[in-house]
Nucleic acid binder design. Structure first.
Lengths: 252, 252
DNA sequence: AGTGTTTATCGTCAGGCAGACGACTATGAT
DNA sequence: ATCATAGTCGTCTGCCTGACGATAAACACT
């Protein structure tokens, strides 16, 4: 297959972001309102064009910073500072996915703690955290009675893929800590799992499991009572990234 | 971030293929010899440009058919006919990955049985199955004494990612059957796991595990003796795609 | 101060599964 | 006939999980 570098079909390449967080016991995704056609006025995932001189991961990190102020770290490093976890998700290139032209979008998945920077997009009117349940439950109505239309383009599919990635990845990795602040309790981590999976977990078995897995949690020595009830130990994420044996997601 | 559809940085988009099979107890990848600059004469992964009117998965399936004659089926469907498993792997877009221009490559992973069509590329001189161990063991020498140079472009990284995907995915899915012919024995399936993981497995525990997992294997009623020794039952891949609990890869 | 509520943490027990490994079976090779 | 090879069935032990009882330490009442 010889090919001429000067004779190839031109594409536009974008990055789209699935930014997830846990708010009020619900898994939420960052959405922005579109200002132009097509899908004007509809909600969409944040994203933008990849520039000529930047890598895909750089473009994703740049878009994430522009939309949330979060800085990203690589998938290999555990979440130690306030940055968000960022990893490539998948690439979407259906010829008809953008009616204007041929656009290939490299979707990325970002996991962030709840509101380290409470300004999604700077313009609060054009960006919001929406429960993924509402976004994926096609044609429902939001809490404010506003009809929740389908996301623009193929973003509902991208979001669904990102949510599924997050749900499965917290099973066998310590990624759930990316949803937590730098210091957190076992109960807070459990509520993350419960929100992402949409199930209730036994607090006693969960506590045994996460504290018994070497390298998962490192006690900081402090305690907190911010959840009410008996004070709980504070932990940081340990160095382990892969959990073996994994957390088991209850079936059904 | 308003953007003008007529004003965007143009990219070339390609698909590259990591085609894996198991030959002679070794995990092998399909490589082709490059005829042009850059990296002329070096081995590379098969691939090519995405056409203006085709989807990414279509482009990958087309390239796979051109190089091997295999037809692909979707990741959701289990391998029932002679086709190969094909799924998207990841996308590589470093600005310098191709010295000539900005190329974004959407890599795909294909798993095929050993030689259903023994013509890799039609031109036997320009394509070959190479053990991934040689390809990833940088700077070694092949069986014929020829120095095994690094793969062209970033293809060593792409191959490593594809191999890692395959290694982890056969843990929790029935994907290992994609390396087997339509009918196979438990022992043949075990040798697939051993080749992909590079470990030895206990035949008795393996047999108990795979025959005891509902939906993994369906007996055809026939037996074979092609491996020597006592005749073995023949199986087809069952409908189950996810194994729960998963196969456990021995550590270290 | 006492009582109830909430959350955290420790313990116990039974069932399931995996690793180690013995035993037996059915072929082909010598 | 004997051996080598590969397949198949069992047994046993240890670990992990799910179910769930019990205790501990805070706060909000009255």
């Amino acid at each position: 297959m010889p090919y001429d570098p000067s004779d190839y079909p031109p594409f536009a390449v974008t990055v789209d972001l699935v930014v997830l967080t846990v708010r009020r016991h619900a898994l939420c995704a960052l959405t922005v309102r579109r200002g132009e056609q097509p899908f004007q006025g509809r909600w969409a995932l944040p994203g933008g064009f990849v520039r000529q001189d930047e890598d895909l991961s750089q473009a994703a990190a740049r878009e994430l910073a522009e939309e949330t102020g979060l800085t990203a770290h690589e998938p290999s490093a555990p979440a130690q500072d306030n940055g968000a976890h960022l990893e490539q998700l998948a690439t979407y290139g259906d010829p008809k996915r953008d009616p204007r032209m041929r656009v290939v979008s490299v979707a990325h998945l970002a996991l962030a703690p709840d509101l380290p920077a409470p300004r999604p997009g700077g313009d609060a009117n054009s960006a919001r955290w929406a429960p993924v349940e509402e976004l994926l439950d096609q044609g429902g109505y939001g809490r404010d009675g506003e009809p929740v239309a389908l996301l623009a383009f193929d973003h509902a599919q991208i979001l669904a893929d990102g949510v599924e990635r997050a749900r499965s990845k917290i099973e066998y990795s310590s990624l759930a800590t990316a949803f937590c602040p730098p210091e957190f309790t076992v109960g807070e981590l459990r509520r993350v799992y419960e929100a992402v999976w949409g199930v209730a977990l036994d607090p006693r078995n969960f506590h045994r499991k996460v504290t018994g897995t070497p390298g998962f949690l490192v006690p900081t020595g402090g305690t907190t009572t911010r959840q009410g009830g008996r004070p709980a130990q504070l932990f940081r994420a340990g160095g382990a990234t892969l959990l073996n044996p994994p957390m088991l997601r209850p079936e059904v």
